[in-house]
């Protein structure tokens, strides 16, 4: 038996809890499967249904608007790529915002590094996203859109996406413990964010004079790159990706800093 030292938080200490992180991710899936008949199918079905709805409702509007891709299912392909980016982002942010509040009971009774909690969330989101990626790629092949080699850039873009979501989620999660309005605010911001990001529409339908608003949206920097490598077979827009990566690092550092500084106060506020 290793003499586990006093867990007082911090990402470094989480290493001792790596097994717990893995088992928590496994547990999350087990809990989702255990009492529902279709289990993991729901995981795939709900995003696909959402894509199908948008495809049905908006395809007529969007039909002629996708230059650079020659496929009758062009819009569906475009939607899938966008949702592939948006889903893990919202999942991580939504979960992280309430992560400390949701686990308040355990945190008040058991000593474990708090950094473990966001890591578990990250792990779950990654697995979810990998499943979705497999489904999306399969759907692409069915629709006759074989992705080119540019798809190999995807892991990098995914990493930036996850970093951005984790950084934002962590900052908001810490703040939400003390200022509970943050949780509500983030939900609304995500709703707006969805429509302010070209996911169900292409940026070309926005009048050129307003496009700069969209261009300020960091999620667009990521989503655009998903579209480039998955739909248009283009290499990533390095400027946008670099900016997103820099912002992700900044947010992660800020989140980590706040997590540390709030340590003494957090247990009192929960």
């Amino acid at each position: 038996m290793t003499p586990a030292t006093q867990p007082r938080g911090g990402f470094a200490r989480s290493w001792a809890y790596r097994y717990f992180v893995l088992s928590s991710i496994a547990t999350d899936f087990r809990l989702r499967v255990v009492r529902s008949r279709l289990g993991l199918v729901w995981l795939i079905l709900s995003p696909l249904l959402q894509v199908a709805i948008y495809a049905l409702v908006l395809s007529a509007v969007m039909r002629a608007r996708l230059p650079g891709i020659d496929n009758q299912y062009a819009y569906a392909i475009y939607l899938l790529a966008g949702f592939l980016a948006w889903y893990p982002f919202t999942e991580i942010v939504t979960r992280c915002v309430t992560i400390f509040i949701d686990n308040a009971n355990a945190m008040k009774k058991i000593a474990f590094p708090r950094a473990v909690l966001p890591l578990v969330t990250l792990g779950i989101a990654v697995v979810n996203n990998l499943i979705m990626l497999a489904v999306v790629l399969a759907a692409f092949l069915l629709m006759g859109h074989a992705p080119s080699l540019t798809v190999l850039w995807l892991p990098l873009i995914l990493a930036v996406n996850l970093g951005l979501a984790m950084g934002l989620g962590l900052c908001c999660g810490v703040l939400n413990v003390f200022i509970r309005d943050i949780g509500q605010l983030v939900q609304i911001a995500l709703q707006f964010g969805f429509w302010l990001t070209p996911i169900v529409y292409v940026i070309d339908i926005i009048p050129a004079s307003y496009r700069w608003i969209i261009a300020l949206n960091p999620v667009f920097w990521v989503v655009d790159n998903y579209h480039r490598v998955l739909v248009y077979d283009l290499p990533p827009n390095w400027q946008a990706l670099g900016a997103a990566a820099a912002l992700a690092c900044l947010l992660l550092a800020l989140g980590r800093f706040m997590l540390r500084r709030s340590q003494a106060d957090m247990m009192d506020a929960l």
Binding site: A4, Y19, F20, S23, T27, R30, L31, F112
Partner: peptide
Amino acid sequence: MGFSGELTGRQNVFHAAGMMGFS
């Protein structure tokens, strides 16, 4: 603490002891 009703006793043992930092 850290027990989940849907998991078996065995699974809960792994989860709870993991939370205590054991491999």
